[in-house]
Design a binder for these strands. Structure first.
Length: 887
DNA sequence: GGAAGACCCTAT
DNA sequence: TAAGATAGGGTCTTCC
């Protein structure tokens, strides 16, 4: 037996159950990437599935309990009932019995038969998640394990140790024997990894987070328009050291499929990527595999699409072939993660359009090579027949770009940091939900304090809770505004008022827990225990996270000082992940379904928030400081600055005295307010200083000239921010704002009028008029898209009509993607539009209806110029309507 | 011409 | 079923 220590990051976990002479056993498979870059499969033994039962209702007599427990013991799937432990529940403290279950998949059925007589807790946590929680593991682990098989890629010292030990579990010669040994432990055979090892759960522990050298695999298919077939494919593997290996696949379809599959198994990636692979390439590979493979033959499907990180064996059919779980967005490849570059780019960059080309131009505007259009995607069959080399080149480029995108936005590192902070596998941070991340932390703490973990709330229903307060804003320009902001407002409220599922005072359910004094009472009357009586789980977690964030921020700062870029980046990712996680707490606890939720939690948090901000506004108003605007946790306050202060920042050769004085007094005022209104548990920060602020009088829409702590234009809500606006409008509006804030309103109006004139005479680029919106739909089995399930009247929706045009033109459409168009006839209702395909086909498009764009521009810009007396109609006309009395 | 409703996207 | 929340502005179609 050869032992080794493995320090690695867990990519994904799964389990295998089987019956042995001594009863049911479940072994956990952890697919990991170790520090040195080897892929490791760790078989963890000794973990048992279980759930918990207690008597229903408030604590009651335990008469007859033995016979009741006996009947539990006799239920199918129950392997053991443990001694009771007293745990806190929503009904008070009472004994809870842990019921061990034969196999994880038997839990749902058992739940059903138990729930009529018992209260269930800890009963719906996926087995692998439970494992991470119970043994306090995170993505980065150290394991003392026994080597079961090692490929020739493992380090030479381990190899020589294996050889000298007389073990034959090494390289090709050891395969048969190793496979047998692996099966004895409960694994499935020779997994396609560098190292296979095993250990008892007690030999694994969390280790310091590090940046794992993951292997990425990006691929792209070029498919026929007329048929369902794949014409060619390309893939690139990116190894931990950054090196890349590119392969091209052509020939008949089966060759392409098996070639790709061989490359996956050889390069052994942790992460599968590509552009829109979740919606397009993976489903297509799945469908084509079905066409070619004999259904009964696992070897057939495995050869074509056996991307799962498991041995090619009859018994592994489910794990070998990727599958899309029903109602889930993403595909699952056993032992690997699917990270779609499209989805990541969309979330991070919020591009106006979502084609790969558009996103690349956004990221690398100077790379001319990327702007070229080589292949008309709508005529792929012809292109492939005529110029296969060009198509292949295009295909290869489309496999490299997703890797570049992921790198540019640090997608993988961010996911790894989130996993580290939430203590989940990489897979859960990539494909999991926010409630899973929160679960990972909350359940861990609940376990350690003997708090029974309730089940997910089903049913939902009930009224919506009230949210944040938004102050009315009056149209106009305001000068010298201090913007103050509560720091992490909702988390702070949760901490300072000890808000938690476990601290809510419920006079009916737990009368013994009602203190006479000292509790926190929300403006709505909900009560929470003081921290001295019981510190809530949520407040404690949030406090820990705040501290953790401070630590990483500090470390990033130190690394920056010493010039250590990599370390700085690492800590920056970590602090950002903490921020993301903290911000998800409120949403999860205000949701209707979450397990540790009660309506009073969410509504009390927002009630406290409204009360805090309103009292500040009131006080400022009473002091004569005008609050111009406020949204949830912010106040925009007019600073007492001399009226003579200049409107626009003077240039260097002008007299800057008054400007500097005004700016300084603004900053002093901001800091003073922050200090004065900050109290224990509610820190008000002076966030920005504005020399001018403008709104046309609508909430959540404003613009400000920031002068402190840096100079920049701040725009919120307006079309400029929206991805469903068109470039010509967003550019014009930005310019308009700059002019207005500089006090040049007359010139601003003239600019608008001139632009509208140009549009009317068609003197603008059609490209700048493209509007795009996302379009829903449901992909059906036969490959068509059903729009009826997504929309009440699909054909009334512009985006649906455009999506249909795309499909008819032979271009790809997947539900959820943005589609672009030009309006060609605005005189009809519904309006006539034509899909914008130029980026994909290279065919120049010029047709549009100027009247539509004139109107949209006039309305949007007019809303703003209205504040200066110019309506939309005035802008269109080019002069102000004079009344009959004016001369 | 204007109200109602569906829908998209954003602010926090 | 699977699931962070609410507040809010604005566009377009339909219907009277």
């Amino acid at each position: 037996m050869v032992l080794t220590t493995v320090e690695s990051c867990v990519v994904e976990g799964h389990y295998k159950g089987r019956d042995t002479e001594s009863g049911p056993e479940t072994v956990i498979e952890l697919w990991c990437r170790d520090r040195q870059g080897h892929s490791v499969l760790l078989l963890v033994t000794g973990v048992r599935p279980w759930l918990e039962i207690s008597l229903r209702g408030r604590p009651s007599s335990l008469e007859n309990i033995d016979s009741l427990l006996d009947s539990v013991r006799s239920l199918k799937g129950v392997s053991k009932v443990c001694d009771s432990v007293d745990k806190w529940s929503a009904m008070g403290v009472k004994p809870h019995w842990r019921v061990e279950v034969g196999q994880p998949w038997e839990v749902p059925k058992l739940r059903k038969s138990l729930e009529t007589d018992w209260a269930l807790s800890n009963a719906d946590i996926p087995f692998i998640n439970r494992f991470f929680i119970e043994y306090d593991l995170g993505p980065h682990i150290t394991a003392e394990c026994e080597v079961l098989w090692a490929s020739d890629k493992v380090p030479s010292d381990l190899v020589s140790e294996l050889e000298s030990s007389g073990e034959t579990c090494f390289g090709d010669d050891g395969r048969v024997e190793a496979a047998e040994k692996i099966r004895q432990i409960g694994g499935s055979g020779l997994y396609p990894v560098d190292l296979i090892a095993t250990c008892h759960y007690s030999a694994i522990s969390k280790c310091e987070p590090f940046s794992a050298p993951f292997v990425l695999f990006s691929f792209d298919l070029e498919t026929s328009i007329t048929e369902e077939t794949i014409l060619c494919a390309a893939a690139v593997a990116q190894y931990g050291d950054g090196s890349r290996e590119i392969r091209e696949f052509k020939g008949d379809e089966e060759e392409i499929l098996s070639g790709l599959t061989r490359f996956v198994r050889e390069s052994d990636p942790d992460i599968i990527t590509g552009y829109n692979i979740d919606n397009f390439d993976l489903p297509r590979l799945f469908a084509r595999t079905r066409t070619h493979a004999r259904k009964s033959d696992v070897a057939d499907s495995a050869e074509l699409f056996g991307w799962g990180r498991v041995p090619i064996l009859e018994s592994e059919k489910k794990g070998l072939i990727p599958e899309k779980e029903q109602n889930r967005r993403t595909w699952r490849v056993r032992g690997r993660c699917v990270l779609d570059a499209w989805w990541q780019a969309r979330q991070t960059l919020r591009p106006k359009r979502e084609t790969l080309k558009y996103v690349c131009q956004l990221l690398w505007p100077d790379n001319i090579e990327l702007h070229k259009m080589d292949v008309d995607a709508s005529k792929m069959d012809k292109e492939w027949a005529k110029r296969p080399d060009v198509v292949m080149k295009y295909c290869v480029q489309d496999t490299i770009l997703p890797l570049e995108i992921l790198g540019e936005i640090s997608a993988v590192k961010r996911k790894e940091a989130l996993a580290a902070v939430a203590s989940t596998s990489l897979g859960v941070s990539i494909s999991g939900t926010t409630s899973q991340w929160i679960d990972s932390l909350v359940i861990r703490l609940a376990d350690s304090e003997n708090i029974a973990v309730p089940r997910t709330n089903r049913g939902g229903g009930g009224d919506q809770i009230a949210g944040g307060y938004v102050h009315e804003v009056e149209a106009g320009v305001y000068r010298w505004i201090a913007v103050l902001d509560f720091k992490s407002m909702y988390p702070s409220i949760m901490i300072s008022n000890n808000i938690c599922y476990t601290t809510r005072i419920d006079e009916k359910a737990r009368p013994d827990e009602v203190p006479k004094t000292g509790f926190h009472e929300s403006p709505l009357g909900a009560k929470f225990l003081p921290a001295e009586t019981r510190r809530g789980l949520i407040p404690r977690l949030l406090e820990n996270l705040m501290q953790l964030r401070a630590i990483h921020k500090e470390a990033a700062k130190a690394a920056h000082k010493s010039g250590d870029k990599a370390t700085e980046h690492f800590h920056d990712q970590m602090q950002y992940a903490v921020k993301i996680l903290m911000n998800s707490f409120y949403g999860v606890f205000a949701s209707k379904f979450y397990r540790f939720t009660h309506e009073d939690l969410g509504s009390s948090i927002t009630a406290w928030a409204r009360s805090n901000i309103k009292s500040i506004i009131k006080q400022l108003d009473e002091e004569g400081h005008h609050v111009v605007y406020s949204d949830t946790d912010s106040v925009f306050v007019e600073a007492p600055v001399k009226d003579s202060a200049p409107v626009k920042e003077p240039s260097d050769d002008e007299d800057r005295t008054e400007w500097v004085e005004a700016s300084e007094s603004l900053v002093v005022f901001g800091h003073e307010l922050a200090k004065r209104f900050t109290k224990e548990g509610a820190e008000l920060e002076f966030e920005t200083g504005l020399s001018s602020f403008f709104s046309h009088g609508a909430k959540k829409r404003y613009v400000g000239q920031v002068i402190w702590p840096e100079t920049k234009l701040l725009i919120r809500g307006y079309e400029v921010r929206r991805t469903d606006s068109f470039t010509l409008l967003t550019d014009a509006m930005t310019e308009l704002f700059e002019m207005i804030l500089d006090g040049e309103s007359t010139a601003a109006v003239n600019m608008c009028i001139a632009l509208i004139k140009r549009v009317r005479s068609r003197d603008v680029r059609p490209r700048d008029l493209v509007i795009s919106k996302s379009c829903k739909g449901k992909a059906q089995k036969n490959g068509t898209i059903d729009f009826n399930s997504a929309y009440v009247r699909p054909d009334s929706m512009v985006q649906v009509r455009v999506a249909k045009q795309r499909i008819a033109a032979g271009l790809n459409f997947t539900p959820g993607m943005k589609v672009g168009w030009l309006v060609t006839d605005f005189s009809q209702s519904p309006m006539k539009v034509v899909a914008w395909l130029e980026d994909e086909t290279g065919e120049v498009q010029t047709e549009y209806d100027p009247e539509f764009y004139v109107n949209r521009l006039a309305i949007a810009l007019g809303r703003i110029t209205e504040a200066f007396g110019w309506s939309a109609d005035d802008l269109k006309r080019g002069n102000r309507q004079s009344t009959i009395f004016s001369f």
